[in-house]
Design a protein around this nucleic acid. Structure first.
Lengths: 338, 338
DNA sequence: ACCGTGACGGCAATCGTTTTCCTAGTTTCC
DNA sequence: GGAAACTAGGAAAACGATTGCCGTCACGGT
């Protein structure tokens, strides 16, 4: 199992095939005018030496590396993964590779990564993060295009692709209305999170369009199941009746669901329940399975990557682009057919 | 906001500083013998042009790229992330960057990535995956060192770093024995998963050392909460009493917990409960919080990366290395102090 | 006045590929 | 039979950075 085979160079290939380096290069890249027999001979030699052209040397000429950098603002997590996968997907199709850099919420670390990526001559960068908050641009006047995905840049001229959270919240409310609920409560994450505020506001707005309002002010807390359970206590102690709860996350929804059941309220008969994020772990384990809003992060990542590719090819798409959310209906808002 | 600044080359820097290219290079890298004033002048020019040396061109000389490739066998997921982060951590300290490639369980795709990484002249590769099963080596006689992390290579000569699942299972059983439980049931994942078999076998073995055995044969099923709930039905219908359940995953444990409570059994008073994976989402939301076995995936990733670095520097560590698991005690096995 | 010796920097080779230009042959056509 | 028109493939100049080798000063000692 000797791992010591040196990397073959095109000179090795040329020597084995009995041609000059230039000719070997042409043979392998389909350039120039060569006899088919020569081409084959070179290809065979390359195969035999398992030759792979040195991408670094190659990019010296083309000026392109077919590589993009991906920087996470905070840490690689549940939200960045799908974005990452979507991006990887779209870029892979364009034969590009991805450099992954985990910023860990440390600006020094982040700047270090930006420099590293630039020195590696990436063709572009994608910046992502765990929260949808706007953030300071990663650099000014960078020599390569940058796209912000999920998170957005504070500079409105930068290209950002963000989930349409307001639209998602509206869809949630519309769905509850469609299944006949009108007395809706809202339990969500901390008020200092942009996501919590935006979703709450959009929900209220959508209700207002039908002349309705939330049965109580939104309950801001954490994103956890524990908070969901606590919130039910608050709701039940309050004086307003409710027939649906729109939750800011699936974890909250699950907590709400468990607590409602413990309190003797049936889901969905007595209270319809809808979450946010469409996280399979929660939606499937919930009893009953949870209706939720899917951010389509993979699609978002793909879309961001496509915009980056376009920008690399000279057609940037500056500005903020909202990526639509999808409603996924399960039994927490509708009874299964018998 | 012009993004059009070309990348400065060292020739630009040299011209601006009024020296030759070679001298500029020496100035920036602290080589040769130059007047301090000259050095400063060059550095200033470089700063002014925000010059970053082209890593590709540079590696042409050094033969090293300070880059490693990371390939996931299946998909990037809950298990690969911490491994990835740990690796990124250890490599970042060595000033190396990580190329991420998502294999998606497709051998073609995987081989394509191996070729890409080789052409990019990575200094080494890390292979990881979602399951601990052994897999076919990613290639034979590769010109760079490879380390398998979490997943292991079927070739015993390859370097693999895997969690010590058997050790973890033993720790779980030991803990249950330590808190006075002797009638232990085991609910775990599908029997065709290596992890499920290994953990079950190790648990039985550890019990046997104390002259005990599981109250019933291990219940193999899925890794989900739903299965955990179903399994409780089976256990309660069976004729053997039990005072503890060791679960193959935290999700199973949570399902078991919910179902036990619904059946009127108290955790931990009547039944102590321990999970596996120490997944915060589950352990924290569980009522009561769940004792679990932590695979220390981040440590494992770090360790794998360190072995890779060592191998790159000429000191490989062939063979299979077991990374220890940790017991994390919470209230599902011990009452809180009053 | 001459030589030796550092100090300072320039020159050019080198890394692996691509690409442009050019030179031999071979056809083809009148 | 000779010139034009191709064809196949070689030679060499890029690309950007590093580095060993050398030339050129200035200075000090004899």
């Amino acid at each position: 199992m000797g791992k010591l085979e040196r990397h073959a160079t095109i000179a090795d290939v040329a020597a084995l095939a009995g041609v000059s380096v230039g000719t070997a290069s042409k043979a392998l890249n389909g350039r120039g005018s060569l006899r088919e027999e020569t081409r084959m001979r070179v290809r065979e030699a390359a195969r035999q030496l398992s030759f792979e052209a040195n991408a670094g040397a190659r990019s010296l000429h083309s000026g392109r590396t077919y590589t993009v950098g991906m920087i996470t603002t905070d840490t690689i997590g549940r939200f960045s993964i799908p974005v990452l996968m979507g991006a990887e997907d779209a870029l892979g199709a364009g034969e590009m590779s991805v450099f992954l850099c985990d910023g860990r919420d440390d600006p020094i670390r982040e700047q270090y990564y930006v420099k590293t990526l630039l020195s590696r001559r990436v063709d572009g960068m994608i910046v992502t993060g765990r929260r949808t908050e706007a953030r300071a641009p990663i650099g000014a006047n960078l020599p390569v295009p940058v796209v912000y995905a999920f998170i957005s840049s504070a500079d409105p001229g930068d290209c950002s692709v963000v989930p349409d959270e307001a639209g998602g919240a509206r869809k949630a409310v519309e769905h509850l209305l469609a299944v006949g609920r009108t007395r809706i409560a809202h339990v969500t994450g901390p008020e200092h999170h942009n996501s919590a505020r935006v979703r709450a506001a959009a929900a209220a707005e959508r209700l207002a369009e039908d002349g309705l309002s939330l049965v109580a002010p939104p309950l801001f807390g954490g994103w956890s199941e524990v908070w969901g359970r606590q919130a039910v206590g608050i709701l039940l102690a309050g004086r307003s009746e409710f027939d649906a709860v729109f939750c800011g996350s699936d974890q909250i929804a699950r907590g709400v669901c468990d607590a409602l059941r413990a309190a003797g309220r049936r889901v969905p008969q007595d209270v319809a329940l809808i979450g946010f994020d469409n996280w399979d772990v929660m939606t499937e384990a919930c009893q009953p399975p949870l209706t939720s809003i899917d951010l389509d992060l993979e699609g978002l990542g793909r879309s961001a990557a496509e915009m980056l590719l376009a920008a690399i090819n000279g057609s940037p798409s500056p500005g903020r682009h909202a990526h639509p959310c999808r409603l996924v209906v399960r039994e927490s808002t509708t009874m299964p057919l018998p």
